[in-house]
Amino acid sequence: MTAAPSRAAVVAPADRAADARTEPRWVQVALITVAALFLGAFVALPVAAVLHQAFRDGAGVFTAAIADPAARAAIRLTLTVTLIVVPLNLAFGVAAAWAIARFRFRGRALLITLIDLPFAVSPVIAGMIFVLLFGAHGVLGPTLAAHDLKIIFALPGIVLATTFVTFPFVAREPIPVMEAQGADEEEAAVVLGATGWQMFFRVTLPKIKWGLAYGVILCTARAMGEFGAVSVVSGHIRGRTNTVPLHVEILYNEYQYAAAFAVASLLLLVALATLVARRLIEHRASRPDPVALPTATRVEPPHVPGALVP
């Protein structure tokens, strides 16, 4: 926490190069202030409002809201959906990032754009297209009805809508990292005889794991919080097809504001927990955080391509 001032104090002539990567003190303070004000006003205050509302009727209301059977059913459903959606999007994201960041091919920009597209599609539309496809009057509706299969207003529909909405999250994160790093090490590994999977797990994955981990965190959080699309395909059956965000809406509509915000703050805690987990993993990996160290002592990642070859 004291690195910046102490570093400024011990600048020796030999550290000129390190000095080249910092700004004058006042610039640093100004930028930190801007960032803190921005995040404070736009994020911290609304969050504080959620917690304030959650506890305004006391902790008893808070725990009762979460222990309620309907709330527990909603939490179970949301966890199930997330456990299905995130691995699917992770597998897709790794494949897409590899193809896009490491190869040049016709239609590459188009492919990236199509992967981004679910962001731009309104969640309302995202829910609607699955109704158009699987609803009783949809394209596949009659076929499904004939086999007594339910997609929408049941778990599969919620999973599909959530997968659609969170589609780009994992894929998008590692691409800039991979592009910035270049492919030299991977090429070296292959030239030295590593198989594709060896190269991927020993060279590529360690380099993109934080980008990937961040993508997974985003995907998880978004999957748990999705409201609009799921609302269209869920059917809102209490205790059966209500996810946590839908349950929040129900409580709010029943004028149980404290309970609504109590359940909402669960999602907030999930987000904070994933962040803590990320920091712990980062620490455990004992990869020196390049940011945390003065540049002079920065350690190069231990990549010795030769060591790969058995």
Binding site: A4, T22, A35, L218, G225, A264, L267
Partner: peptide, 27 residues
């Protein structure tokens, strides 16, 4: 600021950034 500077409360700012994703949009 998050990458280049060390200052007290940096972890808090870092954590705040992700919150808009985690909150359901309606909330």
């Amino acid at each position: 600021v998050l990458v280049r500077y060390r200052f007290p409360g940096r972890w808090l700012l870092d954590a705040l950034v992700d919150i808009p994703f985690a909150l359901p949009t309606a909330v």
